Amino acid sequence: MLVFSWSLVVLLLVSSSWAEADVAVTEEDRSSELSVGELLERANRHRTPDFDEPPLIGGDIAIKPEGDRNADPCTARGCKWLKNTDGKVYIPYYIANHYSTRERDIIVRGLQSFSSVSCIRFRPYQNGDREWLSIESRNGCYSYVGRQGGGQTVSLSRQGCLYHGTVQHELLHALGFNHEQTRSDRDNHIKVHWNNIIDGMDYNFYKIDTLNQGTAYDYNSVMQYERYAFSKNNLPTMEPIPNSNVSFGKATQMSKNDIDRLNRLYQC
């Protein structure tokens, strides 16, 4: 009887572990079906920042408290990382040690994805580096736009931010890019339904003088949020024009246009 009881306990524990694993896999599978914009909005929806964290605009763009919410730092003062004499742009990074091996691998894969399509080379931080990306699990997913000087935080929270596309999205912010729906030519491609936006969130849709680099508006950009972003009533906040049925905001990784404008900005 004792043997039977212990066998039953072991069976129940194993079954419970399998059930938990199934739930985890199911949750991950569901997340992998979401676009980058959906993942970011979900991760930041109930964000409660610590006292030392920056305010955010656009859902995930960090700004300094005294910063102008409507100005693009890349056109206002310049924000590009410096190019080396060999034509490459080496950007030091430091990954905080609170990530698991698997989580770190996701981040590193995102960093390395730039080297095969551009002259951007992310490399580990070294003593003496004066500016670098400090990748940390803070509250939510966010990044400053462009090079800030010194160590600048890229937050990739362990709760909801560790996906290949979200890593690329935040790194593109750090490289100098804003969201597609805030492009200066947005109104030619996207109609914003202001009445459907969460109260106080309308600034997420303000146009700014962005660095379009002569590229076309891209509905498939990893920087384009989806149709219901920041909706207060489950009605669309954005729709494409002139064809409202065009799919947009579904990207799970950088598009060809994202890569083209990156290479144009850094003259790769």
Rank of each mutant, 00 (worst) to 15 (best):
V3Y: 14
W6D: 07
V9T: 15
A21K: 09
V23S: 05
A24K: 15
T26M: 12
E28P: 02
D29F: 13
R30Y: 10
S31H: 06
S31F: 06
S31R: 10
L34P: 02
L34S: 00
S35R: 01
L39G: 06
N44V: 14
D50F: 14
D52Q: 05
D52K: 01
E53K: 10
L56G: 00
L56E: 02
G58I: 00
G59Y: 02
I61N: 00
A62S: 10
A62G: 10
K64N: 11
P65D: 11
E66G: 06
D68V: 01
D72C: 12
P73K: 04
C79R: 14
W81A: 11
L82H: 05
L82S: 07
L82N: 13
N84S: 14
T85K: 09
A96Q: 15
T101H: 09
D105A: 05
R109E: 11
S113I: 13
I120T: 08
F122L: 06
Y125R: 04
Y125E: 03
G128N: 03
G128D: 14
E131A: 13
S134T: 05
N139L: 03
V145T: 08
R147S: 13
G149M: 05
T153R: 05
S155T: 13
L156C: 11
Q159S: 08
G160Y: 07
G160Q: 10
Y163A: 04
H164K: 01
H173C: 03
L175N: 11
G176E: 09
H179K: 08
S184W: 08
D185N: 09
K191F: 11
H193T: 07
W194I: 10
N195A: 02
N196D: 14
I197L: 04
I197N: 07
D199W: 08
Y203T: 13
N204A: 15
N204E: 15
F205H: 09
F205I: 03
K207P: 02
K207Y: 01
K207T: 07
L211D: 06
G214C: 03
Y217A: 08
Y219M: 08
A229E: 01
N233Q: 12
N234Y: 05
L235S: 12
T237M: 00
M238G: 08
K250L: 02
K250G: 07
K250M: 09
A251Y: 05
M254Q: 07
M254D: 03
L262S: 14
L265G: 05
L265A: 07
C268F: 00
C268G: 03
